[in-house]
């Protein structure tokens, strides 16, 4: 084969394709600001850790729903499973053994969730949106029932008490002000985000978007669709499980509330708020969602729920693709205007 110098079109195509995975300025600013919250809002650190954890769950929903197009109402199940798995490990590790090491706890939480995610992924391979919605919801309800009924293990409705994780990496003890918890949660979120980012911008990620776009064609070009869906569902379950583990470790508690239906619904709503299929949608969504909840919910809980409902209806009727979609449209309009003048 002779070495052919690539055409200008090929060079341009390479640049365009590779350019999509380059880190943008806005992204770098986002993460600098996110970590800077440590100094910006020193009194709000537990809320901020919670937002980071919710963001991780929303990111996991994004992988399944935003990229692969599987409607799920069950991501809360994996969150709860991760929380209980890590919580139990920390509880029975008694704060000393390797079991109560937080980082190992993350792998335990994520791992158990991933195993269950893998097992249940086969249930969502077929069927319409409605079937998938019901199946994921059904699995979440079953997990909820199991957690509530297995009192000897989970503590039932009282929750899992005495979760005492040891110091992170044996160095940083969790403190009362949530400083370690915040930095720990943010680092975990960032690391998993970087991996997810690579994943969605890879051929694997492209194949997920293709499955979402047209399953008939993906099969016709020889793509192992089911294997891809199983893979992404399992990875997403791992992410949600890690988020659950983080929640159990940083709050030193796990309760049936962690597996409740509203967890799944909230995660999906956060993603949709921010914009599905954008990676940052879930993160932005969790910030807005949790802040709104904090501000409005403090007035009265009904107030928050009412405005959440109104926002959802308005989002569906008037705004395509959440906040990021809105920003994208505004940017496009602005560019068009700039180009015309």
């Amino acid at each position: 084969m002779s070495a052919i110098t690539p055409s200008t079109e090929a060079i341009r195509a390479r640049a365009v394709l590779l350019g999509r995975s380059r880190w943008g300025v806005a992204e770098i600013i986002f993460w600098v600001l996110a970590f800077a919250c440590y100094w910006l809002f020193p009194t709000k650190l537990s809320l901020l850790s919670e937002i980071a954890i919710l963001g991780l769950v929303a990111l996991s929903v994004d992988l399944v729903l935003g990229y692969a197009g599987i409607v799920t109402l069950g991501q809360g199940a994996f969150f709860g499973i991760g929380a209980y798995a890590a919580g139990l490990a920390a509880k029975h590790g008694m704060g000393t053994s390797l079991w109560s090491d937080p980082v190992i706890g993350l792998f335990i939480g994520g791992g158990v969730a991933a195993v269950i995610g893998f097992a249940t992924s086969f249930l969502v391979l077929r069927g319409s949106d409605m079937t998938r919605l019901m199946v994921t919801l059904g699995v979440a309800l079953i997990v909820d029932e199991v957690v509530n009924q297995m009192k000897w293990l989970t503590g039932g409705s009282d929750g899992l008490q005495g979760v005492l994780p040891s110091a992170v990496l044996g160095i940083w003890e969790f403190d009362l002000f949530g400083r370690v918890a915040f930095v720990y949660s943010m680092v975990v979120l960032f690391v998993l985000f970087v991996i997810a980012r690579a994943l969605v911008k890879s051929p694997f990620g492209l194949s997920l978007q293709a499955i979402k776009g047209n399953m008939l064609r993906t099969r016709a070009i020889g793509m192992p669709v089911n294997a891809r869906l199983v893979a992404v569902y399992t990875v997403a379950a791992f992410y949600a499980g890690v988020a659950g583990a983080l929640a159990a470790q940083t709050t030193q508690f796990a309760s049936p509330d962690y597996v409740a239906f509203h967890r799944s619904a909230d995660a999906m709503l956060m993603l949709v708020f921010g914009g599905a299929g954008h990676l940052y949608g879930g993160l932005l969504g969790s910030i807005i969602f949790r802040t709104m909840q904090d501000v409005l919910g403090n007035i009265t809980p009904q107030y928050w729920q009412f405005w959440l409902g109104v926002t959802l209806v308005a989002l569906v009727l008037f705004v395509r693709g959440g906040i990021l979609g809105l920003l994208g449209n505004m940017l496009a309009a602005w560019r068009r205007k700039g180009g015309a003048s």
């Binding site: 195509a13 590779l18 995975s21 890879s202 051929p203 194949s207 070009i221 192992p224």
Partner: peptide, 18 residues
């Protein structure tokens, strides 16, 4: 995407498209 599937390289998740 189609070429990657043909060459069984469609599941690569560690390198960017391109």
């Amino acid at each position: 995407l189609t070429i990657a599937e043909r060459e069984n390289a469609g599941a690569a998740w560690w390198r960017p498209v391109g």
